[in-house]
Amino acid sequence: MALGWESLPLLPLRCVMDHLSLADTLTATAVCRNWRNALIMFEGHRDLVRLQTKQTEKNLFLARLFRRNVTKLHVHIDCEGEQLDKFFSIVLPEFFDSVKLEEIIFIGPSYLQHNYRLSPAKLNRVVTESLVFKNSHCISNLALFWCEMDAANDNDRYMHEQIEYYSRPLSFDEMPSIADSVLSRSNSSLMVFSTLQHIAVDYDYINTSALETLSHLPLFSHLSLVISEREAMQPLRWDHIAPCYPNGLDVLLHIVSLPFRKFSEVIDNVLLEGMCLISIKVYFCKTLYAPLLTALVRYKHSLRELVWADCPYNHMDSYHRVVKNLQYPQIDACNINPFILLCWQCVNLRRLVIHGYWI
């Protein structure tokens, strides 16, 4: 009798599935019971798993399938309230079984819907920090994009047996503090064992006290800050922060869809003396703001990368361009291209990208 596709041996079938994308693998599990068993019996090997918090049943399936060998976990938060609480209490604890989780990224609804007026997503502090410290031996990247840690609730320790076990050595303050914006100051003694190197947050949710707390991470050396059209930008006290990092703290700045009127605020409150700026990327701001390029000269010894990218203007007339009348005075009598001047002064600049503009 001829054998069909449903009778293929499990091990060779599982080896074939290793070469499929995540979407194709999930489709393959719907073919027949034998194909599904091949994937479940030999746990999935997927480096990157993306979850959408609204899809609870799918998330549980993916978590139980790939939790052990996943190295990068990206969580897209597209819900709130009870649905989000369900994700933190049911889905996320599954990843406490991971062997080598190196990257955890939370992306809030503001970035998913391109609406900067939405409220930030509230992350369960007990669950999130327990997962971070559980993987302290291997984690290197942590990103919170338009997300903030919620106030700790001690009852959250008992929502799942994994959380209860891994949260035992941790302590949390029920009263919120600005020093606990990213990780709790009360767990600073455990931070010395962490391999965390890179943290990415929105500029609105970082402060001097929080950076002093993060200085207990021995390998923490790169901080990515995202600036967009939000509230007023509060300056960071780099004269207080720098002594906490004897090996230095490199800053990567990302400016996204910032209105023209806010660039001066970036120069006055963000680009301050004492910050070790190594990279700045400006996306979709619809203008070239020359004073910002001039201000970058103060980082001439540290700046290594500059990216200024925008969408090319699309019009039926190829010679039609929109030119904005800038309100700052033209000081340079010889009209030197600011990019050329910056490249000449920044001796360590290694990468320059200009996209969507005529220079």
Rank of each mutant, 00 (worst) to 15 (best):
Q52C: 10
Y357S: 02
R304H: 08
L214I: 00
F95E: 11
V31N: 01
S98C: 10
Y357N: 03
Y165S: 14
Q113N: 07
F260P: 05
I105C: 14
T213M: 02
C138Y: 06
L13Y: 09
P338E: 05
F42S: 00
I354S: 01
I354L: 10
H76Q: 09
M191C: 10
D47L: 00
D317Y: 12
E231V: 14
K324E: 05
I241Y: 06
E6P: 14
I163L: 05
H76S: 11
F220V: 02
H137A: 11
D78R: 02
A333Q: 11
H222F: 13
N325Q: 14
S177H: 07
W146A: 10
L10T: 13
L352H: 07
C32E: 00
C15Y: 11
P9K: 09
C15K: 15
Q345P: 06
F88S: 02
R185Q: 14
E161A: 14
L249P: 15
P169I: 06
C311I: 01
L293I: 05
C343N: 12
L26A: 08
E6Y: 10
F133Q: 01
M149Y: 05
S21Y: 07
L217N: 01
S181Y: 10
V256H: 15
Y205L: 10
I178E: 07
L190N: 12
S7A: 09
P93H: 01
Q83G: 02
G356P: 03
C244S: 10
H254I: 15
K58M: 07
T53M: 00
R298W: 01
I163S: 06
E82G: 02
F61A: 08
R351Y: 15
E6C: 10
S89M: 06
Y158S: 14
V307A: 14
I40V: 13
D47E: 13
R298D: 05
I107P: 00
I199F: 03
A210W: 01
V70M: 11
A28Y: 11
R321N: 06
F172M: 04
L217F: 08
L252T: 00
Q234S: 09
V266T: 03
D154F: 04
L20A: 00
H19M: 08
V126W: 04
F87A: 02
R261Y: 06
L92G: 03
L253S: 06
D250S: 08
H254D: 15
F145I: 11
K262D: 12
H216G: 02
N135S: 10
F88H: 03
L51M: 09
L342F: 09
D150N: 12
D18Y: 04
H355E: 15
A232K: 09
M191W: 00
G108Q: 04
A242I: 08
N141A: 03
R298P: 03
D250W: 03
R237D: 12
E212Q: 11
C311N: 09
W146E: 02
K100R: 13
A290L: 10
L249F: 08
P176A: 03
N37Q: 10
S186T: 13
D154S: 13
E305F: 00
V182N: 04
E6F: 09
W5C: 14
L84V: 03
Y328H: 14
A28C: 13
R64I: 01
H320F: 12
I107L: 13
L26V: 12
Q52A: 13
L170A: 06
L3F: 11
I206G: 04
R185G: 14
L225P: 13
H240P: 07
S302P: 07
R50G: 08
L225C: 08
L190D: 15
V347C: 07
